[in-house]
Amino acid sequence: MADNSASNIATADALTLLLHNQHAICAAIDEFTKWLSENGVETVADNAAAAMETLDTNAKALTAAIIRLRQS
Rank of each mutant, 00 (worst) to 15 (best):
H23S: 09
V41W: 03
A48K: 02
D3Q: 07
L69V: 05
N47E: 10
R68A: 11
D13H: 04
A65W: 01
D13Q: 06
N39M: 10
K60C: 09
A24D: 13
M52T: 08
L69N: 02
T33V: 06
G40W: 04
V41Y: 10
E53K: 15
A48W: 00
A61G: 08
R70L: 13
L15H: 00
G40Q: 08
K60R: 15
T16Q: 15
A48T: 05
D56Q: 11
L69C: 12
T33H: 01
Q22P: 00
A28R: 05
Q22H: 14
K34W: 05
V41G: 10
I25P: 01
E53D: 14
N39S: 10
A61M: 08
A10H: 03
E31M: 03
N8Y: 04
I25N: 02
A65E: 03
R68P: 00
E38H: 13
V44N: 13
A24N: 12
T11L: 04
N4A: 08
I25A: 07
E31I: 05
N39I: 00
T57I: 09
I9F: 02
L36M: 07
A27T: 03
A10D: 13
A14D: 08
S37H: 14
C26V: 00
A6H: 04
A45T: 04
S7W: 00
I29A: 05
L55F: 13
A14G: 10
N21D: 07
N8V: 03
K34A: 07
M52G: 11
A51P: 04
A48R: 01
A27P: 00
S37C: 08
R70Q: 14
K60I: 09
L69H: 04
A61R: 08
A45D: 06
N58A: 04
L17T: 09
H20E: 12
H23K: 11
I9E: 04
N47D: 07
K34C: 05
D56F: 08
E42K: 13
N58T: 06
A28V: 06
L15M: 14
G40A: 14
H20S: 10
L19R: 15
E53I: 01
A24H: 10
A59M: 10
T33N: 02
A49H: 09
